[in-house]
């Protein structure tokens, strides 16, 4: 009896101590988290401020909120940065890469997850090893190959860039989609077969619809990666009319180095679509990128 009494008293003491401790600690937690949040956000706020100032005002007040809000920077940057062209180029790169990745990746993942043809273990090993090969190992010969296709055969550089994007992201999409499909229960597929569905129907009507979250994850990771990609586009695209926004912005900043109002507005134009998508699909973005980053 005394023992039990002791325990309960000890528990209540612990409980009280803990709750007091917890509330005190949480203030500390929030202070730390707010400081880190400010560290993450303030640079973006400064760019947003500068994008609606005149250069004259930026000269006097480079970091603070704008006194007079001007919006001319945006149409100016849009024209001078050739954003109409480069934005649509980037959209083409993103959409085409996602489409190819999902179609080819989905087919390959289905074959590897459900059919396991002879040699699939070897193939998985190949993709596992190949995914660890750094780009730096093959970028020089790849440049030669791509240049050959471009100059000698006359293939559009944009198609070649998309091909490089699809290839470099192939292991990721195969691993992700395959593991997603393997986790799906097979009962539904068996039931569909019993009902007389053929193999093609099982794949397109049962497996692919159930893999939708996996496709969404791959699409987001690949899409964001391509939208933000810089190095490959810089290496393989040399016609300014085919630049994606990233390399185009790089040259733009180079050219208008002193014109902060203009370059800030340009930065906001590039960030904007990503932010809208991120804010509307936060959970998928965060979980998808966490998963994608670990798988790669």
């Amino acid at each position: 009896m005394t023992a039990i009494g002791n325990v309960s008293i000890r528990d209540t003491i612990l409980q009280r101590g803990r709750s007091r401790e917890r509330s005190r600690l949480l203030v500390f937690n929030h202070v730390v988290l707010l400081a880190l949040t400010a560290f993450a956000v303030i640079p973006l706020v400064v760019v947003a401020f500068n994008s609606v100032k005149t250069n004259l005002e930026i000269g006097q007040n480079p970091l603070g909120p704008p006194v007079n809000v001007v919006v001319e920077n945006f149409p100016n940057a849009w024209d001078k940065g050739n954003f109409a062209t480069t934005m649509s180029n980037s959209i083409i790169y993103v959409v085409a890469t996602i489409a190819a990745e999902l179609v080819f990746g989905g087919l390959a993942a289905y074959a590897l997850a459900r059919k396991k043809p002879p040699g699939s273990d070897l193939l998985m090993l190949y993709f596992l090893v190949a995914s660890t090969i750094p780009l730096w190992m093959y970028i020089v010969p790849l440049f030669v190959q791509i240049n050959f296709l471009k100059v000698k055969i006359g293939v559009d550089a944009r198609i070649l860039l998309i091909m490089v994007y699809v290839a470099t992201r192939a292991p990721l999409s195969i691993f992700l989609l395959r593991s997603y499909m393997i986790d799906l229960p097979t009962e539904l597929e068996d039931a569909a077969r019993v009902d007389g569905a053929n193999e093609l129907q099982v794949m397109t009507r049962i497996v692919f619809p159930l893999t939708k979250p996996g496709f969404l994850t791959v699409g987001l990771v690949v899409g964001l990666g391509v939208w933000n990609e810089f190095l490959l586009a810089l290496t393989f695209i040399h016609d300014p009319n085919q630049y994606p926004v990233t390399t185009s912005f790089y040259k733009f900043v180079d050219r208008f180095d002193r014109d902060w109002a203009l370059t800030s507005a340009g930065a906001i134009i590039i960030i904007f679509p990503v932010m809208v998508l991120f804010l509307s699909l936060q959970r998928q973005f965060i979980e998808g990128l966490a998963e994608g980053g670990v798988k790669l």
């Binding site: 193939l123 091909m163 490089v164």
Partner: peptide
């Protein structure tokens, strides 16, 4: 499997 494998071989393994 072929399309993705061929593209990957061409872009990564061979170079």
């Amino acid at each position: 499997i072929a399309p993705l494998l061929i593209i990957h071989l061409y872009v990564v393994a061979v170079p």
